[in-house]
Amino acid sequence: MTVNPDAYFAVATLLFSLGILGVISRRNLLVMYLSIELMLNAVNLILATFSRLHPDEGGTMIALFMIGVIAAEAALFLAVIVQIYRKKHTLDSDAFTELAQGKKL
């Protein structure tokens, strides 16, 4: 066993950061969704590494649950994206500013 846990953590951290970067810096809703998925997978990776590190299969179990949650989330998110696209014919997240009070400044 030569690969250090730190290497796994480094990969997971980088993946997570890429996810955040995608959510913040891209305007494409699809990219935002995929970035969120990446973050979730980064967390899954971390959980798996924990589980292996200790060694305790509890982490694996939680990662398993998370895969289920990811599936549910994906189904809903994609449905929402489809619906949004039908409404405005764009995937630009900046086009959806209904949260702002009043006019867009």
Binding site: M1, N4, P5, D6, F9, A12, T13, I46, F50, S51, R52, L53, H54, P55, E57, T60
Partner: peptide, 16 residues
Amino acid sequence: LTTLGDAFPPVSDTFG
């Protein structure tokens, strides 16, 4: 994260 452990312990084949 890196404070958690330095090396993977050996595990049985049935792990996971």
